[in-house]
Computed example of a mutant assay.
Amino acid sequence: MTTDSSDLSQVDEEAKLDLTQQIRDAILGGEFAPHQRLIEADISARFDATRAAVRTALLNLTGEGLVERLPNRGARVRAISVDEAVEIVEVRIGLESLCARKAAVNITDADIEELRGVRAQIEAAVASGHLVEYARLNQEMDRRIRDIGGHETATRLLERLRAQSARHQFRLAFHPGRASQSAPEHIAIIDAVLARDPDAAEAATRAHLEGIVDVLRHLD
């Protein structure tokens, strides 16, 4: 039995994309600190990948803004300042408001049942003080609204922007009193989408993100 060269090429490409995701998750999870050098040999050993695959993954992440290349010094994790994080959220306001509007228009009965489930889980997580679970559910809510909205260009841009500011978003989730403030904002977004009210969905999304900007500006 012979294997087509195109099949091998596809497998190789999928492996590179998977490695990119693994390194991305390690950066966002804090396993690699801001400004930490990313040495190809060490990453190759850690993830059992070839040097070529590591090099490609780091180039992908450089394009996403998570990694920066230094002349004659290789790559390192790019540090995102609070000022840059604020600018990222300001850009997200337009994109996420658009996605919320689209979701309110496009939502199906099946989508409504699933989004109601996320809503209930958010309320339960906040009530029990499970902040890690609450942060995860926030991401799940955002993903579902983007999926329902179905705006592929906005989704691609948001995924890149959110990856760059993920570390600050994680800090926000544990900021004193932040969960009790943000949870009603998330519920308001969900309720507007469930009500199929695009104007309310856009307004609730904008209000929530503008609140994030205010909190970020007061972070040390």
Rank of each mutant, 00 (worst) to 15 (best):
T3G: 11
S9G: 06
Q10F: 14
V11M: 12
V11L: 14
E13P: 02
I27F: 00
G29F: 15
G30I: 09
G30F: 11
A33F: 14
L38R: 00
I43W: 00
S44G: 08
A45Y: 09
D48Q: 06
A52P: 06
T56G: 08
T56D: 13
V67G: 04
G74E: 11
A75H: 15
V82D: 06
E84C: 10
A85D: 07
A85F: 05
R92D: 01
R92T: 07
L98Q: 04
A100D: 03
A100T: 07
R101W: 09
K102M: 02
V105T: 10
N106L: 04
I107S: 08
T108L: 08
D109A: 11
I112H: 09
I122S: 07
A124N: 05
V126F: 01
V126H: 02
H130T: 01
L137T: 10
Q139Y: 08
E140L: 13
D142N: 09
R146Q: 13
E152H: 05
A154R: 01
R160H: 15
R160L: 08
Q164W: 01
R167A: 15
F170C: 05
L172W: 08
H175P: 03
G177W: 04
A179V: 04
S182C: 02
H186V: 09
I189L: 15
I190W: 12
A195H: 03
R196W: 03
R196K: 08
A200F: 04
T205F: 02
A207P: 03
V213D: 01
V215D: 13
H218C: 04
H218S: 02
